[in-house]
Design a protein around this nucleic acid. Structure first.
Length: 738
DNA sequence: CAGAGACTCGAGGAG
DNA sequence: CGAGTCTCTG
């Protein structure tokens, strides 16, 4: 295969300039992915570079696996040894081998935002600081910025010297870090931070990776932060063959610490750098591209560039001014239906993009109403759901018994009668013995003052130890099943008759299906690896072309994707640009909004719709927003207004069913599990009466004390020998007469 | 210690 | 409006 055939001159240059530092400024739709994959293939194929000495860093796992796939197609199975991964998974890979040098064990846990919140909340409380003045969210964002700038707690403390509030924040930071270390856990930012630390402090590790990675590529470079910059610099210090690709106009993650200067100043840091500009767009129509150019022009703080296309003129941008958010959604839904019914497009061709996740709700409602198949990305992420996080906490604890946060999460889930008081006592005992909580539980019976609850701790830890036995030889599915069964988690959940509980059960089955898939595809997969994969997936990673669905996602998630027809919804002052930026002193925050808009516009290949509503429900109240400045920034000649026509058509039928149907919850990106039920559902609601002696799978032997009709079922009051009186629904209790 | 009910505050974007 | 937290009672 000729690797440069069909490429334009600039693209060729980008593929062929393999040595030294290279900065590729790649405008939207300029064939960046093609260039990257061909470049890698060229290295392997033509330059005979060993695949394992190539490192390619992408923004999402999805982009990584896509790139890997494409390279594999060209160079064959050798591609397996190329490291194509996100910053985070690359770091985990390094840390799993090396972090024992820093007082952690290689089985460390990875904490997500919720875990972080819990820790910081605890610490703030322990320090006696008022959460009103030290809100967890703010603290976390401070800690995150420090880590993104590679500033340690000690350095931050020094910086805050003499600043009362700042010193308090630095104290929290310090304690937070101590706690993480004690729990043998890392947060997301630590993954980068610790890797830098190890590379700096352990010269042999630095030597090893520095020597190994002869060619480094970094995609989406405009969204890297300072720590990531340092990391790349360290890894590339030896060979200095570093190729970064990005587009300053698409830098939309400043809030996450991204430093746009990394790309703007690349040539200053790497003086020898060769700069290649890819300015021909192959994706959009002239009109769409011009629209994007006109909008982004309004950013003062920006390097001019000239993105152009040979594509056809195309249609004007469709603007729709809705009465309210509901009307807006209706316009989107009926436009899609019309297009699909006319045979012009199928559902796959459409994406609806919005600024905030909350906006998806109304759109979904209308889609369900009109039977439009869709996939939603973002929102409450699958692995962030309570029930999934519970199971994950069990799993984490099995791997890393120092993970006290996970322990605390599940020690009383399902209820084991272990409350705060007991936990405090256990903690005190553990501290006194200088043991972890887990270790303390193992010897709990020796402690006189804990006698009353000791057996509960004992039962819990025994259960975990039992699951842990022969852990290496168990399939993940097996481990998960044992947890669900032995902890009675599944059973307890099934005893609840709420719709919510049913959803949870369903989610757990989906989780098991995921575990099964993992078992089947990863022969040598370990529990650690499974947990790691789960911790590091972004929602967008699960984006798969499912048969014919409209895609709903935030503008941020849409980065890197393209669709024939795109709707951008809620283009109003206060929504997009976000109200958070309207009064900000920082002009760049508003410019970042405009860059997000630029990203959104350039996702569209053929047709772009921009919609805005006069009124919209926000925070449960109705707000009235002006049309967004971004709409005004589009020259008249590129716009056509669909509003009047629609209004006439629809004025009669603006009543919509507001009730959310079940379908709303079925939006997850996972295929429905075909897994057989773990615990067989209850059979018959046989009749019991007071005085009957029964036996229950979990609670054991008991006597029925009362029977009360409840709906189609009966509520039984049962006095159990071991756990005392419980109220259970006859239908679900699975009782056996004794 | 568990569960119900009151209450409060928040939703900007994500690996 | 709704999720998460606090407080009260059994």
């Amino acid at each position: 295969m000729n690797l440069i055939e069909g490429l334009n001159d600039k693209q060729k240059e980008a593929v062929l300039t393999t040595e030294g530092a290279v900065l590729i400024l790649a405008g939207a739709g300029s064939g960046k992915t093609k260039v990257l994959t061909h470049r890698i293939a060229y290295l392997v194929h033509e330059m005979k570079v060993a695949p394992y000495s190539i490192l390619a860093i992408t923004f999402t796992n999805k982009a990584a696996s896509e790139m890997k796939e494409r390279v594999e197609k060209i160079v064959g199975s050798g591609a397996k040894d190329i490291w194509v991964s996100t910053f985070h998974s690359m770091c985990v890979r390094i840390l799993r081998k090396t972090i024992h040098r820093m007082g952690y064990s290689n089985q460390f846990s990875i904490y997500d935002a919720e875990d972080q919140k819990k820790l910081v909340g605890q610490i703030t409380k322990d320090l006696g600081l008022d959460e009103k003045f030290y809100p967890t969210k703010k603290t976390l964002s401070i800690i995150s910025s420090q880590k993104n700038d590679f500033i340690s707690p000690a350095q931050y403390e020094a910086q805050m010297l003499g600043d009362f509030t700042g010193t308090n924040y630095s104290t929290i930071y310090k304690m937070y870090q101590e706690k993480l270390e004690k729990n043998n856990s890392l947060d997301f930012d630590d993954l980068i931070f610790k890797t830098i630390q190890i590379l700096k402090e352990c010269s042999d590790v630095r030597e090893y990776y520095g020597e190994r990675f002869k060619y480094i590529l970094v995609d989406e470079y405009q969204d890297t932060n300072n720590s990531q910059f340092m990391l790349v610099e360290l890894l590339a210090s030896k060979h200095r063959n570093v190729c970064v690709v990005g587009d300053p106009d698409q830098s939309i993650y400043k809030w996450r610490g991204a430093n746009i200067r990394n790309i703007l100043d690349f040539e200053k840091k790497y003086k020898e750098a060769k700069i290649i500009k890819l300015e021909e767009n192959y994706r959009c129509t002239k009109t769409i591209l011009e629209t994007a150019n006109e909008v982004i022009k309004n950013n003062i703080n920006r390097k001019e560039k000239n993105l152009w296309t040979q594509n056809e003129e195309g249609e004007q941008i469709c603007i729709y001014n809705a009465y309210d958010d509901r009307d807006e959604s209706m316009f989107i839904a009926s436009t899609i239906v019309k297009e699909v019914e006319s045979g012009n497009e199928d559902y796959n061709s459409f994406a609806v993009l919005y600024r905030t996740n909350a906006q998806s709700r109304v759109i979904e409602e209308l889609f369900i109403n009109k039977n439009i198949p869709y996939q939603l990305y973002g929102g409450v992420k699958f692995y962030a759901r309570k029930e999934i996080k519970d199971i994950l906490a069990y799993l984490k604890l099995l791997v890393n018994t120092r993970d006290t946060l996970s322990l605390e999460r599940i020690i009383n889930v399902p209820r084991r009668g272990i409350g705060e008081t007991s936990m405090d006592r256990l903690a005190a005992y553990a501290a006194q013995e200088n043991k972890t909580m887990y270790e303390a539980m193992l010897t709990i019976n020796e402690v006189y003052e804990l006698k009353s609850v000791a057996f509960k701790f004992q039962a819990f830890v025994d259960m975990l130890e039992e699951i842990k036995s022969d852990l290496r030889n168990k399939k993940i599915t097996e481990i998960v099943e044992q947890i669900l069964e032995k902890s009675t988690y599944m059973q307890t959940l099934k005893l609840e008759t709420t719709e919510e509980a049913r959803d949870r059960v369903e989610n757990i089955y989906q989780f098991i299906a995921k575990a099964q898939e993992y078992d089947e595809t990863r022969e040598d997969g370990t529990l650690e690896n499974f947990l790691e994969e789960v911790s590091l997936v972004a929602d967008i990673d699960n984006y798969e072309e499912q048969n014919n669905t409209v895609k709903l996602m935030t503008l941020h998630s849409a980065k890197g994707l393209e669709f024939p027809q795109v709707f951008i919804a809620g283009v109003e002052e206060g929504v997009f640009p976000s109200y958070m930026t309207l009064n900000s002193v920082d002009e760049d925050e508003r410019e970042e909004e405009r860059r997000i808009c630029y990203v959104g516009i350039t996702r569209a290949r053929k047709r772009l719709y921009i919609t805005y509503a006069n009124a919209r429900k926000q925070f449960g109240r109705i707000v009235y927003n002006a049309p967004s400045r971004f709409i005004e920034e589009i020259p008249e000649k590129y716009k056509k207004d669909l509003t009047i026509k629609r209004k006439a058509e629809n004025s009669a039928k603006i009543k919509v069913i507001s009730k959310l149907s079940d379908g709303l919850k079925k939006h997850t990106t996972f295929s429905v599990s075909n897994y057989n039920n773990l615990v067989t559902p209850s059979k018959v609601a046989m009749s019991f009466e007071s005085g009957d002696k029964v036996s229950h799978v979990k609670f054991g032997f008991g006597i029925i004390e009362g029977v009360r009709p409840a709906g189609a079922d009966y509520e039984l009051t049962i006095n159990f020998e071991t756990v005392g009186t419980k109220k259970l629904m006859s239908k679900f209790a699975n009782l056996e007469r004794v």
